[in-house]
Design a protein around this nucleic acid. Structure first.
Lengths: 149, 149
DNA sequence: GACGACGTTGACGTTAACGTAAAGTGGTTG
DNA sequence: CAACCACTTTACGTTAACGTCAACGTCGTC
């Protein structure tokens, strides 16, 4: 987690396009989310994306952009690509999903939720530690300043 | 992030020990935190732990236990071992740290904080998605149930 | 005194998630 | 048309974070 920032990339700032007709090249998408094309191709290979093909080249639609966004968000939360794919697949298979599949999906969701609860707790704890370290550091700095004057 | 649970391991349930005199073997620590001894040795090799040595064997004190706890928490939050070590080292060097070091530490802390803010936002967003997927899944399940009856 | 549990140090293997380099295709632009 | 993009596939390389295995030492105990 090497301190990234933007990475969010919302719908192209235009508020009123022929909604849904926008497409993207791999390079565009890569710039939007600050990843390399290589990464995007890799995600496809791993079953996370399935762009259209026009001849040889990939054409991405809104659906793909959303998937990529969710994927990257999942990654930031520490999910593996395999886990993310699992959810995406089940989500896509939902309309005609049988009961067993759906129950399994609910299980997975509960798991993810629990996971995030833990993360929230971890973050709270970690923030406390940081508060602590920071105040100690400031203290020392202050002492140094006073002494140097 | 393969769905772990316990991993927290608080001070040995005893509330009133000769505070600070407790030590641990590598195996004990491993069981407490549900990691393997290999992992603990690896963390030492990476400079995250520095247990005492009695002859050949490692002896861990409270300090080491806390470090391990923080390390694992950091990991769950997606920090690399290198990042974690950086903070630990600076923290240890604090008392006699020079101003430059301290300022650098504050920088790093700010970075980590920002990171966690993003994670919090990601979690909120992700929870919404999950809510969404879940309600849709339940809907489908309900329809199936009614139809099957 | 053999056995089992636990500890030790190498050293090599493994997996995930890409990076990188090579070699080719397809369009457009000066 | 040549040069230059942006895109493609194939394939090998890399890094982090351990796992696994061998070969050995040290207890306690049966």
């Amino acid at each position: 987690m090497s301190t990234s920032r933007p990475q969010e990339a919302n719908p192209p700032v235009n508020g009123s396009l022929p909604r849904q007709r926008r497409t993207y090249s791999i390079g565009e998408l890569a710039r939007m989310f600050e990843v390399t094309p290589r990464t995007i191709r890799f995600y496809e290979q791993e079953g996370l994306l399935a762009p259209e093909r026009r001849g040889q080249t990939r054409v991405y639609h809104e659906k793909d952009r959303v998937r990529l966004k969710l994927t990257l968000r999942g990654k930031r939360l520490g999910f593996s690509l395999a886990e993310i794919r699992e959810v995406i697949e089940m989500y896509d298979a939902m309309p005609d999903g049988n009961a067993r599949q759906l129950r399994r999906l609910l299980e997975i969701l509960a798991e993810k939720r629990a996971n995030m609860e833990r993360q929230l707790e971890d973050i709270r704890l970690m923030q406390r530690e940081l508060d602590d370290v920071e105040s100690r550091a400031r203290e020392v700095l202050d002492r140094l300043a006073r002494h140097d004057t």
